[in-house]
Design a protein around this nucleic acid. Structure first.
Length: 625
RNA sequence: GCGUCUGUAGCUCAGUGGAUAGAGCAGUGGCCUCCGGAGCCGCGUGCGGAGGUUCGAUUCCUCUCAGACGCACCA
């Protein structure tokens, strides 16, 4: 469906043109004075200079034409000093637009992605190290970007891009040697098949790594052994490769579980190790192209561009000891991705501290021609998650908070809130706490601008009041409850025989449609015949309807600007508009059945839009809370 | 030193080249013969500072102050 702003702007542009002004002045925006109008055009003021006329005269010319040109579209078209053109949409037009949304695929959001492939690199977990709060933001934001892109018709490929090739592997191997020297991996004379069974469980692994890491800081000899082991692993030493595969298997299963708990999934579980085969060729190629040269013993590539304000440090491709590093492996990964997917855009989502690294990698990739000039390469820089003290979030003891523990704390906080106010059986309360807790966590994060640091406040995020995830869910649950009662009412009326046959049929069909609606509200369209949208009867209803009509625009903008917080802001405003409407309108008590059906139709669309949005954000609503 | 990001209400955050800069929390007052009151409706204070561009700047530009982060062999 066309966006409502575009539909209005089409009329506005035509009106400017028929008054012999350039159509470009007919830009229409949402009003920033809702007390005066719903939409506005400021083009008359911009045009005043070009045509040497008073803005208000231009505005008057245009409004006169517009009124005749689209009499059914507007309830009011006004020219106001100094030259604003203020618009109010007609109730009929708005209702018809919402009816269109209701039955449209994806509630009227157009798929303009054209199936273009976009690779989203997010997550960035390290194998054998537990996920901690530092991994939270990128995972949540990346998942949302991926979902929005898919919804808009892009082919999004999410890659977790694991840190699976570093020193931590050598540390684990050597620690394992000391703990279990009897294992065949450490017997140099062993010639048989290495066991399929892993020599450690995930909980052992989680114990081994921190121990080894701590030890390496004090024990130089141990650290040297670990470095040696890492080197051997990277050069294909079979026993260590076997251990590495065990580490990978055990750790990956655990990571999948933990990301799963966050409703975060990846299409690819690639890692730095996958880039290794490309590195020798990469280095050779960069040298052959004359881009890489030796500097202070290392191999580097200059990345300067003519209009740089200041010279940027070159990108190091190979250390003076001959080892590859971060940038090298990211470039190797790009080569593989170009070969396998040739995406039209890359989106990397990481902590903002890596900005320089990505500037370097992007420039080398473009300069060497690994990535086409027109391919977009975007680095979404995330701010850090701080505690209430404004410093990076830590546990009470001052350590790094594990993600699992953070989630547990949130779920507990939500559980306590539920139990304060509701009686709910234990099992349902636990389940609801997890669903609501995830919403609290994700909404708390996503409602902030990506690039900014933000304060993580458990009490605020898990509050059921104000601009929070739980409040959004609460709105959805209330609507569900009303819809369920409406269905019951129809069924009861039918059974009692005091309703028309048509109403009964409508009721049954409505119930069937409700039943058929899938969990994935993001694609559901309302095909129930339970009445159509009706023109708004009150200011509250009109505001709600106007807000709904902005849905497709909001989703498009949120993705284009890579700004999930705009989606959050939208659903908060929509929930708020629903709250006002609900408070002033008796829905189920309405005696006029057609009117009532219209209300139901409206709130059902509100629910569908809200559910669709939270699905894009990456969480779901419970049935009750 | 250089660079990037960020300074908006007591706190946490939105926002725009245009009319009176918005929410939530906290504080305070009101609304239930009513569909979930975990709701709704009121009430106060603010664009770090100084210049410039513009008919109009919180928004764009320059300078300045403050904070966070980054500046070649970690990832």
């Amino acid at each position: 469906m066309k966006k409502i702003l575009d539909l209005i702007a089409e009329q506005m542009r035509a009106a400017f043109e028929s008054c012999r002004y350039a159509a470009d002045y007919g830009k229409v925006t949402l009003s920033n004075r809702p007390d005066l109008c719903e939409y506005q055009c400021n083009g008359a003021m911009a045009a005043a200079k070009a045509y040497h006329k008073k803005p208000i005269d231009i505005a008057n010319d245009v409004t006169a034409v517009l009124k005749n040109q689209a009499p059914d579209m507007f309830e009011a078209v006004e020219a106001v000093m100094p030259g604003f053109i203020n618009l109010k949409l007609s109730g009929e037009y708005l209702a018809a637009y919402l009816d269109g949304m209701r039955v449209a695929d994806k509630l009227g959001v157009e798929e303009n992605g054209g199936g273009k492939t976009i690779i989203v690199d997010y997550g960035g977990a390290n194998v054998a190290k537990p996920l901690h709060v530092g991994h939270l933001r990128t995972a949540i934001i990346g998942e949302c970007i991926k979902r929005m892109g898919n919804y808009l018709g892009y082919h999004m490929i999410g890659d977790v891009h694991l840190g699976d090739w570093g020193l931590q592997m050598g540390l684990i191997i050597e620690e394992l040697r000391d703990r279990k020297p009897e294992l065949p991996y450490f017997d140099e004379t062993f010639t048989g098949e290495y066991p399929q069974e892993s020599p450690f469980t995930i909980s052992e692994l989680e114990q081994i790594y921190p121990a080894a890491s701590a030890r390496s800081k004090e024990d130089e000899a141990f650290k040297a052994r670990a470095q040696e082991a890492t080197f051997k692993l990277q050069n294909g030493y079979a026993p260590f490769r076997a251990i590495w595969r065990h580490i990978m298997n055990v750790s990956l299963a655990d990571l999948k579980k933990n990301y799963g708990n966050l409703n975060v999934t990846f299409d690819l579980w690639k890692g730095e190790s996958d880039a290794q085969p490309y590195i020798p060729g990469l280095i050779e190629d960069l040298q052959k192209k004359g881009l890489a040269y030796e500097s202070e013993g290392a191999l580097v590539v200059d990345i300067a561009l003519p209009d740089d304000p200041k010279e940027l440090p070159p990108c190091i491709i190979r250390k003076s000891d001959g080892a590859a590093l971060y940038a090298t492996s990211d470039l190797g990964t790009i080569i593989e991705r170009e070969r396998d997917y040739a995406p039209s855009e890359y989106i990397y989502i990481t902590d903002k501290r890596q900005e320089l690294h990505f500037i370097q990698v992007f420039r080398v990739a473009k300069k060497a021609g690994y990535v086409k000039p027109e391919t977009k390469m975007t680095h979404m820089m995330c701010g850090t998650m701080n505690g209430k003290d404004g410093k990076p979030f830590k546990t009470r003891a001052g350590g790094v908070m594990r993600l699992e523990n953070l989630i547990r704390e949130i779920d507990e906080a939500v559980y306590n809130r539920i139990m304060e106010n509701r009686t709910m059986d234990e099992e349902e309360a636990q389940k609801a706490s997890q669903i609501i807790g995830l919403a609290a966590l994700k909404y708390g994060d996503l409602s902030n601008q990506v690039s900014k640091d933000y304060v993580f406040d458990i009490d605020r995020f898990t509050s059921f009041e104000g601009n929070t995830g739980p409040y959004i869910l609460y709105t959805i649950v209330r609507i569900k409850s009303i819809l369920a009662r409406y269905e019951e009412g129809l069924a009861a009326a039918c059974a009692a025989g005091n309703a028309s046959a048509a109403a009964c049929a409508a009721g049954n069909a409505f119930a069937a449609a409700a039943q058929a609606q899938t969990q994935d509200a993001a694609v559901g369209a309302d095909t129930s015949p339970a009445g159509n949208m009706r023109p708004a009867q009150s200011d509250e209803e009109k505001s709600l309807m106007l807000k709904l009509a902005a849905y497709n625009d909001v989703v498009e903008t949120a993705f284009a600007e890579k700004a999930p917080h705009k989606l959050c802001q939208f659903i908060y405003e929509l929930s708020d508009a629903f709250g006002s409407f609900y408070n002033t309108t008796m829905i189920l008590k309405e005696e006029d059945e057609e009117k009532k059906a219209g209300y139901i139709c409206l709130i059902r669309l509100v629910k569908d839009v809200l559910e669709s949005c939270i699905h894009l954000l990456g969480f779901e609503a419970p049935e009750r809370m």
